[in-house]
Write a protein that binds this DNA or RNA. Structure first.
Lengths: 204, 204
DNA sequence: TCTATTTTAGAACATACGGTCTAAAACTCA
DNA sequence: TGAGTTTTAGACCGTATGTTCTAAAATAGA
């Protein structure tokens, strides 16, 4: 019926994510994007709408790639291991992030969500999902005895979510392994059942 | 010797902080600032240098006001109370932040520090100081028995710093009292000496 | 092969940006 | 009072911004 697209939307979004992720919304211009992607600005507007809509699509793409499978991947593991593996992966990811891009969702939570209701909802929704994932893990662990029962699962889920976000922020300016690994040690201890053992065995 | 300034630097910086804080570095133009402050762009450049230097001065001003006295104020209290009061204040501050400005230091950590060595250092240095404050509190508490000894003070300090940053990010998109207060409950429990009591007394 | 339709390329548009210039204004010290 | 110096106001500069326009290119169906 008409002239076909010359590009692959997935590849375009991957490149767009890269730039938005690294430089943020404001500091990335359409011309930056066009050049990095190898499209004209007209093609971008034609295919994705305006800058706001393009960022939205890039963020959705990022979220899908970064959170979509991950939750599923960890959900099959035993609960304590799932949480541990999740955090270990985040730390490794943060330490190998040489460009210091951090997490695009966290970046969006701070740069664009506070002034934009749409992104507010999008970001909040993902955070709710991550929290729910933690809560399911904690509940499962408390049921099978692998996780301490002295805290409410919902509180622990919040703590884990907060810790996750904290790591993401901290790593952005202080990507030090000792700091990040030390930071989660008390959190993991909190999960451990039979706290008294820990108290006795720890040397200081 | 010459024509005197017509403005009060403190008031100017207060207004500049307000705008940079709310909209960030990129999204705040010199003209925005000039209008909000009631100065011409020439006066701003004359008095503060370029935009980069102006933001730096605003951030320094913010840090001085926000962290300078606070640490001292809490340091006199008993250690557990100091930490508790610190977090309670942060939560109240986050919940009453109707403009959703969050914390300007955290905002800087994400927007400007990753691409700017100067701000990288400035932000990192403040975070180091906050971490050191937490560490001193924990050490004091572990010495006088008011804080649990099962974790290293340095690890706990990191955990507290991470939690602080996490709250600041989370509150930016989900300023919900239940969430924030629930989130710190396990952290406070972690500080408590004699964990077994908590385990037994908690109902679920 | 022609028509209809969409995508391209790149010029163009209005506005906004960070930053500077000129000249007048406002002071201090001699 | 006059010389010297700094601050002010606002026009100005070059460039960059988000977005749109024009026209050519490329296809599918008739």
């Amino acid at each position: 019926m008409a002239r076909p697209r010359e590009f692959d939307e997935e590849k375009i979004l991957l490149l767009a994510v890269e730039r938005f992720w690294e430089h943020g919304y404001e500091a990335t211009s359409i011309r930056d994007l066009a050049q990095a992607i190898g499209l004209t600005t007209a093609s971008i507007y034609n295919a994705f709408g305006d800058k706001h809509a393009f960022y939205r699509k890039a963020l959705d793409f990022y979220v899908e790639r970064s959170f979509g499978d991950r939750v599923g991947r960890f959900e099959t593991k035993p609960p304590r291991e799932a949480i541990g593996a999740f955090f270990n992966e985040i730390i490794e990811r943060s330490l190998s992030d040489t460009k210091r891009k951090g997490c695009m969702l966290v970046n969006s939570a701070l740069e664009v969500a506070p002034h934009d209701d749409e992104f507010q909802r999008v970001v909040a929704q993902v955070l709710v999902q991550v929290e729910a994932f933690f809560k399911r893990c904690v509940e499962r662990g408390q049921k099978d005895g692998s996780i301490n029962r002295c805290q409410k699962a919902s509180d622990m889920a919040g703590t884990l979510l907060g810790t996750l976000l904290g790591i993401r922020v901290l790593a952005r300016t202080r990507p030090e392994r000792d700091l990040l690994e030390g930071l989660i040690r008390p959190i993991f201890a909190l999960l451990e059942p039979n706290h008294s053992q820990t108290i006795l065995s720890h040397d200081r």
